[in-house]
């Protein structure tokens, strides 16, 4: 049989050869691509943060010592946290409903989720820019109903970013949560009911605790993805609530300050990796369907 399976590397010429290199060569093209065009450029960018304009930690002092930049960090975190809370609050009931709905209903919702996820990011952001503008449908409708007399400022501010980001992140929390709730044994909830739990008790003491790992892991993913988002905050947010990714782009593109750009990139990278490490530690696997 040894002849039939590929070359058996353990016994070549009667000598025992270490098995460490079997088929490794096949991964080399992909590895080379990643090393040359991913790892080395990122490392070199990070290196520039401590070398330019002069060696030292000056860029980090400037970045972390200035209230302007601290405000951007704070804003990045609070927008991401807000988006995470809102997506979780909407995502949990939707995932719950999807897990128990008749499949002809849920398949429609799944199709919508997939369509939304795969529709061009700029298209979705553009749609919200149009909907939320001063003369947009939402303001027109509210004014038509007599609820407001002046158009509400819905775009170029926190409201715009939150709506736009929630729109983009919802599928990323609904799909994994659906998987978690789907795996919960309905008999456990029946048991709770038999033991005299009210619906509310069954929800807060049984269903939610059982779904918590899924919620934490989904929330972490949405939070991390939000931290690094560039396009949607740049188009729907205002200058007053700039986010970290925009700051990095601005350092590099308009200010041509590679040192500061590298330092801001390192901050984003460290936070992202730390949160993924927590995710791996807590749940064993990182969910990586992000775009």
């Amino acid at each position: 049989m040894a002849l039939l399976t590929e070359r058996d590397n353990t016994t070549v010429m009667g000598k025992i050869r270490p098995v460490r290199s079997r088929n490794f060569a096949l991964t080399v093209p992909a590895l080379l691509l990643l090393v040359v065009f991913f790892i080395l450029p990122v490392l070199s960018l990070l290196l520039r943060s401590v070398l330019e304009p002069e060696p030292g930690l000056g860029n980090y002092q400037a970045l972390l010592g200035s209230t302007t930049y601290l405000k951007i960090f704070l804003n990045t975190f609070s927008v991401s946290a807000l988006v995470t809370v809102v997506t979780l609050a909407i995502g949990f009931p939707v995932a719950w409903a999807l897990a128990i709905m008749p499949s002809r209903l849920s398949s429609i919702v799944f199709a919508i989720l997939l369509l939304s996820m795969w529709t061009n990011l700029l298209t979705r952001t553009y749609a919200w820019m149009v909907l939320l503008q001063r003369t947009g449908v939402i303001n027109k409708t509210l004014m038509g109903l007599g609820l407001i007399s002046e158009p509400l400022p819905l775009v170029n501010n926190l409201v715009g970013v939150t709506i736009g980001m929630t729109y983009i992140m919802l599928p990323f929390i609904i799909l994994p949560l659906y998987g978690v709730i789907r795996k919960i044994d309905p008999a456990i909830l029946q048991a709770a009911a038999l033991c005299g739990a009210t619906r509310w008790q069954a929800l807060t003491r049984v269903l939610i605790p059982l779904a918590t790992p899924g919620m934490v892991s989904g929330a972490l993913m949405v939070f991390v993805m939000s931290l690094g988002y560039f396009v949607t905050p740049a188009l729907l947010g205002g200058t007053a609530n700039m986010m970290l990714a925009e700051l990095i782009a601005q350092f590099v593109q308009s200010l041509v300050n590679w040192g500061m750009g590298g330092a801001a990139a390192l901050v984003l990278l460290v936070v992202t990796l730390a949160l993924y490490a927590i995710q791996l530690r807590l749940f064993g696997t990182a969910r990586m369907e992000g775009r």
Binding site: S44, L45, V224, Y229, A249, Y276, M288
Partner: peptide, 18 residues
């Protein structure tokens, strides 16, 4: 799989420099 999870803007800026 790491390029999937890292913020694209970091990769974009790094590759741009390179």
């Amino acid at each position: 799989l790491t390029p999937m999870i890292l913020p694209v803007v970091v990769l974009a800026v790094a590759l741009y420099a390179f």
